[in-house]
Amino acid sequence: MKGLLFCSALSWRPKSARLWYVLVILLGLLNYAFGVFSDNGFAVAFILFYCTASLNGGVMMFGERYNWNKYIVTLPVSRKQIILCQHIETAAYELCIYMSLVLSSVAAMAWKGADAAEIVYDVILISVIIISISVSHMVSAAFGGRIGQRCGVLISVCAIVSILQSIYDFPVECAVCCIIAAVIIRAVSIPVSTKLYGKKDL
């Protein structure tokens, strides 16, 4: 397990995943600009979607791309641990994205004066991303990373487009509901993906 986590850390060291980190920082900057100038949120959503897609691909398809997923089964780890490790890895990198979003929004608020709608918007986006990644975890545990990634991307595109269309005035309750839904789906996705992965032929 320690070895697996270390392997994830290696594959995400800045040297190997430079582009991804650049995207996350760009995401923060754009979100800040969007907050300050109250511009269209499309660019933010687009980059966010891009980050998730590559995170998704990075975590779930990393093993399959190199046959590494078959190899690690022969190391002294259980399949449960392999899936758990994937979840930990995603969680860590999701955290990166969220920090970037929330911090930049807070910074924008400080610059411009309080506007809670900004944070609500971020929270809803974040929840959507959590849900899409959770679903794609389950799908890739059953059908492989490629299909999982496509599925996750599809969900986040649909959600983000519908969010953008109903322009920004979400009530706070809506954000709370989204968070609860995201947490529940994430909580379900861990045992479900473990179960699905346990019986799979790699």
């Binding site: 594959s11 190997s16 990393f62 791309r65 190199y66 046959n67 590494w68 078959k70 190899y71 022969t74």
Partner: peptide, 9 residues
């Protein structure tokens, strides 16, 4: 295993 199975990086 019978194929290369380490990440190329």
């Amino acid at each position: 295993l019978d194929y290369p199975c380490f990440p190329t990086k």
